[in-house]
Design a protein around this nucleic acid. Structure first.
Length: 287
DNA sequence: CCAAGGCCTGAATG
DNA sequence: ACATTCAGGCCTT
């Protein structure tokens, strides 16, 4: 009985450090016992128990506390590799980010790495975001869609994003003009949402899955980057035979279908646990 | 529909 | 030192 109780508590626990250091967010820093980070037009301060203090006093469910982790873990634990990852990184959560910041972050992420993504996004915030003071410290909010839509490509490029600068400007403009509305996409299904955001320049399959998983509540999204492909080849060779070396759009769709068949509707959580485990195995740096 | 090549940049590799 | 390669992809040909 006591064992059962403690097991349940573990499954619902939140590990802030692990969650933030899992490649989902970039504008975060450790301040003593707190983690401070930029989330759109808000700044969050989080303590070790996952309690959130918000600059805008918004009640954001940043750690998705409403997700039933008991059920999710049970659902995705279809194989020994995933069970191992879940056990090792218990408390890892999918974070519910500001969608616009998430969109820009993952456009920046393409063909890049965490250190550089972080540097670029910090420059973008500092240059185009509003400076605010919170808990006696200086922060820059993430720029609004309007601000980035009006910025020149050269100004954006100077933040170290290279050829992605024009993607960022065009993406911001699409959101500013409300050609795509995140709130309505939150209510749409996976395929409809994916088709919509893949129309944004700089957004392909992988980036779209990140945006959907980390900010639009699509828990079946399963971002397939080089690391995940490597993981599938290494641990899931029998489950998902990868037919070609390069993942074309169609191959990506076929593979995603197989993945959801295997892991179920919360496949995105499986992805996050596996990704975290493998990156730690290779001692990759986070923030 | 698929394969191949180009792309900003900076850290790592030789 | 200095050149080449490579990294959480995407777009064009």
């Amino acid at each position: 009985m006591i064992q059962l109780l403690s097991k349940m508590q573990n499954n619902n626990a939140i590990n802030v450090e692990i969650s933030i250091n899992s490649g989902q967010v970039f504008l975060w820093r450790k301040n003593g016992e707190y983690w401070d980070g930029v989330n759109g037009q808000d700044i969050l301060r989080i303590d070790n128990f996952g309690s959130i203090k918000s600059y805008q006093n918004t009640k954001t469910d940043f750690f998705r506390k409403k997700d039933n982790m008991e059920q999710i873990i049970k659902s995705i634990s279809k194989d020994s590799t995933t069970r191992k990852a879940v056990k090792k990184y218990l408390g890892l959560r999918i974070l519910k980010q500001d969608p616009f910041q998430c969109l820009i972050s993952f456009i920046v992420s393409s063909n890049s790495n965490i250190q550089k993504i972080k540097t670029s996004l910090e420059k973008i915030s500092r240059k185009f975001g509003t400076k605010v003071e919170f808990e006696n410290q200086e922060f820059f909010l993430f720029p609004t869609p309007k601000k980035l839509a009006k910025a020149s490509i050269n100004e954006i490029r100077n933040c170290g994003v290279g050829y992605r600068a024009k993607f960022i400007k065009e993406a911001a403009n699409i959101i500013f003009l409300k050609k795509i509305d995140f709130e309505s996409l939150k209510k749409s299904d996976y395929f409809e949402t994916k088709e919509s955001i893949c129309s944004i320049p700089g957004v392909g399959n992988k980036v779209a899955d990140c945006i959907m998983l980390f900010s639009l509540n699509k828990l079946e999204a399963f971002p397939l980057d080089r690391w995940m492909i490597r993981i599938l080849e290494k641990y899931f060779f029998n489950e998902f035979q990868l037919e070609t070396k390069t993942i074309t759009k169609k191959q990506y769709d076929i593979l995603h279908d197989k993945i959801v068949n295997h892991f179920g509707p919360y496949a995105g959580y499986a992805q996050q646990f596996l990704f975290k485990m493998e990156r730690e195995n290779y001692q990759k740096k986070w923030l």
